[in-house]
Simulated assay, not measured.
Amino acid sequence: MPYKEKKIEKYYYSIGEVAEMLGVNTSLIRFWEKNFDIIKPHKNKKGNRYFTKNDIENLKLIYHLVKEQGMTLEGARKKLSAQKEELTDNYKIVECLTEIKGMLIEIRDLLD
């Protein structure tokens, strides 16, 4: 059985790392930070932003609403304030299913 390395998880991610995860510019993340109260990155003395897993999940949810569903910022803000729990649960389910699909494709490729 092949050895699998443990996935290293960090507590804080820089704005560049988060931008790369989402495939957007860092300026868009700063813009969303100003427009959405749910994003509260930690800042050091120099003013560098460090995002937690929770911040990243919120950014992914905002990305889904604004970029994938085409909502306006005001619409996304209202929807988040009214239905954050439901939206988060639905988004986590979609993310989990996407991950399972990727694993199944990887297994299929190994079997071929």
Rank of each mutant, 00 (worst) to 15 (best):
Y3W: 11
R108N: 08
K7L: 14
M71T: 11
I39R: 00
P41V: 00
P41H: 07
E86T: 11
E68Y: 10
I15G: 00
L87W: 12
E74S: 07
F36R: 00
M1Y: 11
L104P: 01
L22Q: 01
K43P: 04
G75W: 10
S81I: 15
G47E: 15
F36C: 01
A82K: 13
I107A: 07
K6Y: 13
F31I: 01
A19C: 03
G75S: 10
M21N: 03
S14G: 05
K10H: 12
K40R: 03
E68Q: 05
T98F: 13
L61C: 05
Y11D: 14
I38N: 03
K6R: 11
E20Q: 12
N48R: 06
L73V: 09
Q83E: 13
K34A: 11
G23W: 14
Y13V: 02
S27V: 11
Y63C: 04
W32N: 01
V66T: 02
H42W: 15
F31G: 04
I107W: 10
K6I: 15
H64K: 04
Y12A: 00
K6N: 15
K60D: 12
E9H: 09
M103T: 08
K43A: 12
K79T: 13
T88A: 03
K45M: 08
R77M: 12
A19E: 08
G47S: 11
D109K: 00
